[in-house]
Structures are given as structure tokens and as C-alpha cells.
């Protein structure tokens, strides 16, 4: 009988050993990066940057090879900004993170010293090499004649925007609308909240991510207006037909600053600090800025911005600092019991 017990343990152990053997093989993958021959870099990013980094990575790989003779392989991971931030905290070995909001990088920095606390000072412009803003995408001909935020709260206008609780982009949408109402009602909290409530009562589908909302609006043809990143709006024009939609720029919007940072602890462990830093710095070079502009992100570089000014109309932009920074904005508006929740809380 003792034998059978041993056999049972052996069977269970061996089946799990098969799983663990899988991990040793994958380990080799990552440890192989420390050799001088080629180096692996993992960029953990959010959804709308796929096209941007696909082009940017090619350019950087060439640049790095020319300069150092070293081959660098760049792996990309995309997903919702919050989800990606969480994955890095939970052990996804990212060398650099390029996310939708500073709040998500702050969260990573707050855990196990993965990122230096003062990461925002390490690169120019608050560590955000490109910016964007929030605009409207409407159907061709603008049948509901939507021109500004106050047109979105009208009766019978159907709005598509993602859920600010699950989507980083949606938080920018929310704050831009809030900023408009704040100016319109001169800070009257009750009136602002009423405006926001009307706006979100017009929302027909609250997708969990920005790309989901775009699909709902373009493919399912639901809604009269999509609140979207400027870069997403241009991309959907390009990908899904300029003859079907047009972009409307509101009178006031928000300066969205998607931040980037080196995940110091991971980079140190993998020996990729130098290349990771160079990678992010390359975003600020003329080449990097040009690629960002081509992918409809507003470059920081004035000259390149001027070159692409047809895509980037001037408009009144409020900043996240007007809300007291991301930590405060998150707490006030998006945490449980925040202003966004109160929109959907039924009055008893």
C-alpha cells in the first residue's frame, strides 16, 4: 500500500513537473538577452499605440544597430492601460512602460520600487514625448450638427464613449467634458454634475476599452458621436473610410499627456538599462517626433508640429494639473463613490 501512495505522489508530481519544465524553457528566453549579441526589450503599452510603436521600433532598431552594432529585439504588449499597469506590478517583466496616464505609472512606482518615485522628472515634458487631445467623431455630413460639448447633452443625441473605470482614454474624455462644464457654469458643482449626468444618460454603449467603443460606433453603426482620442479618430478615418465619418474639434478640450518610463528594477535585473533609456530618449529626437506626428500624436517639437499643423488644429486645452494632478482626479472622480459613480447611483 505504501507503494501506491508513492506512485500517486509521483504521478501528481510528474504532471506538475511537466508544467515547471515549461518554465525553465521560457526562462532561457529571457536570460538569453544578457548576452552581448542581441538584446530583448519589452515595451508594455496601451491599446491605441500599436501602429505608432510598430513604426517607431523599426526606426529605433536600425538606429541602435548603426550606433552600437548591437541587435535589439523589441517585444510589444498592448492592452487597457490599467490592465497593463497591473500586469507589470504582478510581474510582467517590462523594460519600459508607455501608458495612457501618469496615474498608472504612479501605481507601478508605488510597488516594490519598480520605478523611481520621481520618474516624471527623468525625461523632458513630464516624461510624455507626445500628446493628444479629445475630439468627436461624427457620421459624414454631421447629421445631428454636433459642434461642441453642449451638443452632446441634447435630447436624442446618442453618445459612445468607453467606461472611465476600465479605460484610461475614457478618463480623459470624462475630464475634458468636466472641464468644459466647469468653465460654462463657472465652477457651480451642482450644475456641472447635472451636465455630466445628462451627458452620460445619452451614452448608449459603455464599452470597456477605447477600441471597443470605436468598433461599436464604426462597425455596429450605433450612436451619433464618438468621443475619442484625436489619434484614434484619425486612425479610424484612415482605416475605416474617410467617406463615412468626420472629425469635429470642440471649443475646449484637455491636453492628454501619455507618459513613458523605464521600469528601473526590471531593466537593472535584465541589464537593459542603457538601451531602455535610449529607446525612450529616441522618442524625443526629430525622427521619433516625426513618427509620432505621422501616427497622429501631437509632437512636442514645435517645428514638426508646424509641419503637421493641418492635422492638429489649435484649440483651448486644459491640463490635468487643473484637476490637481492624477492622484487627486482619480480619487475625486473615478474611485468608488466618486463623481462618476454618482451619475449612475439611483436617487432613493
Amino acid at each position: 500500500m505504501k507503494k501506491t501512495k508513492k506512485l500517486a505522489a509521483f504521478l501528481a508530481a510528474s504532471s506538475l513537473a511537466m508544467v515547471i519544465s515549461g518554465c525553465s524553457s521560457s526562462e532561457q528566453n529571457s536570460s538569453g538577452s544578457t548576452t552581448n549579441k542581441s538584446i530583448n526589450l519589452l515595451n508594455v503599452s496601451y491599446d491605441p499605440t500599436r501602429e505608432l510603436y510598430e513604426e517607431f521600433n523599426k526606426s529605433f532598431i536600425k538606429e541602435w544597430k548603426d550606433e552600437t552594432g548591437q541587435t535589439v529585439k523589441i517585444q510589444q504588449s498592448h492592452g487597457g492601460s490599467g490592465k497593463q499597469g497591473r500586469a507589470v506590478i504582478d510581474g510582467l517583466k517590462a523594460d519600459v512602460v508607455t501608458l495612457a496616464l501618469a496615474y498608472d505609472i504612479d501605481e507601478i512606482a508605488a510597488n516594490r520600487n519598480l520605478i523611481n518615485k520621481d520618474w516624471q522628472e527623468e525625461l523632458p515634458d513630464h516624461s510624455s514625448p507626445y500628446t493628444s487631445t479629445i475630439v468627436f467623431l461624427v457620421r459624414k455630413g454631421n447629421p445631428k450638427s454636433i459642434h461642441d460639448w453642449n451638443d452632446l447633452v441634447k435630447k436624442g443625441v446618442s453618445v459612445i464613449t468607453p467606461n472611465p473605470k476600465t479605460s484610461g482614454g475614457a478618463r480623459w474624455n470624462y475630464l475634458a467634458a468636466w472641464g468644459y462644464a466647469d468653465r460654462k457654469y463657472q465652477g457651480d458643482q451642482a450644475k456641472i454634475k447635472d451636465f455630466m449626468k445628462k451627458l452620460y444618460n445619452n451614452v448608449e454603449v459603455l464599452d470597456s476599452g477605447a477600441r471597443g467603443s470605436t468598433t461599436t460606433f464604426t462597425e455596429r453603426q450605433i450612436g451619433d458621436v464618438l468621443i475619442a482620442w484625436e489619434n484614434e479618430a484619425y486612425l479610424s478615418l484612415k482605416e475605416l473610410g474617410e467617406d463615412k465619418f468626420e472629425i469635429i474639434t470642440p471649443s475646449l478640450s484637455i491636453l492628454a499627456e501619455p507618459p513613458v518610463a523605464v521600469v528601473d528594477k526590471n531593466a537593472k535585473a535584465k541589464g537593459t538599462e542603457k538601451v531602455a533609456k535610449a529607446y525612450l530618449e529616441y522618442l524625443y529626437t526629430d525622427e521619433g517626433q516625426e513618427i509620432a506626428a505621422k501616427n497622429y500624436y501631437r509632437p512636442r517639437n514645435e517645428k514638426i508640429l508646424e509641419k503637421y499643423k493641418d492635422h492638429f488644429p489649435n484649440l483651448d486645452l486644459i491640463k490635468i494639473d487643473d484637476f490637481g494632478g492624477w492622484q487627486k482626479a482619480q480619487k475625486e472622480h473615478f474611485s468608488d463613490g466618486g463623481t462618476f459613480d454618482s451619475i449612475y447611483t439611483p436617487k432613493n
Binding site: 487597457g80 490599467g82 490592465k83 497591473r86 467606461n163 473605470k165 476600465t166 470597456s208 473615478f334 468608488d336
Partner: peptide, 10 residues
């Protein structure tokens, strides 16, 4: 979905 929502908020 609510579970996911909570996760996204850490």
C-alpha cells in the same frame, strides 16, 4: 465585468 472593473482600479 464589475470584478474586472475593480481589478483595473488596482
Amino acid at each position: 465585468l464589475l470584478i474586472m472593473t475593480k481589478l483595473e482600479q488596482y
